[in-house]
């Protein structure tokens, strides 16, 4: 196939599931997430010489995946002349089966996250779901660390507010936190 194929195959084996689930949380569609995962790994292969050994390979891959997904969302947005917002794009959609299968509590949480604005949603996915450090999140988002800290606090606050709006069931979600 291509030069360095065996090494690349190992990287794909180890990280592609995590990259897929990260992208899935941004685009909420299995087929699209699979396509964007492919695209992300192709970009990673082609720009591997730009990989800085100081950062983690996984962090670098997530950064590529994030840019790929954001590009896709921007292109897909019907309102390209307005600042795009995932809340507008997905708030009316039914939750995918992959989420529904996890139960009501997770589904409520997932839908509440989807109603947040883009910045909040991204920091929650990175900091709270994927458990990246502040430094790693800042690197992925290309933000300053302070911005990551402040935005995370505000995002959690907004998420709790969103869960409260949902009434029944939110207490169970919050009670675990």
């Amino acid at each position: 196939m291509v030069d360095g194929g065996e090494e690349f195959s190992q990287v794909y084996d180890e990280y592609s599931d995590r990259i897929f689930s990260y992208i899935f949380l941004l685009v909420n569609n299995r087929a699209t997430a699979e396509d964007l995962t492919q695209e992300s790994f192709i970009k990673a292969y082609q720009s591997f010489n730009q990989f800085n050994e100081e950062s983690q390979l996984y962090t670098w891959l997530v950064k590529i995946a994030r840019n790929t997904a954001i590009d896709y969302i921007r292109k897909k947005s019907k309102y390209r002349y307005l600042p795009f917002d995932l809340k507008n794009l997905y708030s009316e959609q039914q939750s995918p089966d992959e989420i529904l299968l996890k139960g009501e509590k997770i589904t409520i949480l997932y839908e509440a996250i989807n109603r947040l604005k883009m910045d909040y949603r991204e920091v929650i996915v990175l900091r709270k779901i994927k458990e990246f450090s502040i430094k790693e999140s800042a690197e992925i988002l290309n933000w300053k660390e302070d911005k990551v800290r402040i935005t995370t606090l505000r995002a959690i606050k907004a998420l709790k507010k969103e869960l409260k709006k949902r009434g029944e069931g939110f207490e169970e979600v919050l009670s675990n936190g």
Binding site: M1, V2, G5, S9, Y12, S16, D17, F20, S21, F24, L25, A33, E34, T37, Q38, F41, I42, Y45, Q46, E98, I99, L101, K102, K105, I106, L109, Y110, I113, I124, K128, I129, K130, E131, L159, K160, V173, L174, N176, G177
Partner: peptide, 29 residues
């Protein structure tokens, strides 16, 4: 809430889909 959030970390992905994607990546590269 943290536990519930961590539940979202893993999204089930079929091994066939994973392998098929890898073949397509190879082909595109």
């Amino acid at each position: 809430m943290d536990d519930a959030l961590k539940e979202l970390d893993s999204i089930h992905r079929k091994i066939t889909a994973k392998n098929k994607s890898f073949q397509q990546i190879e082909s595109k590269l």
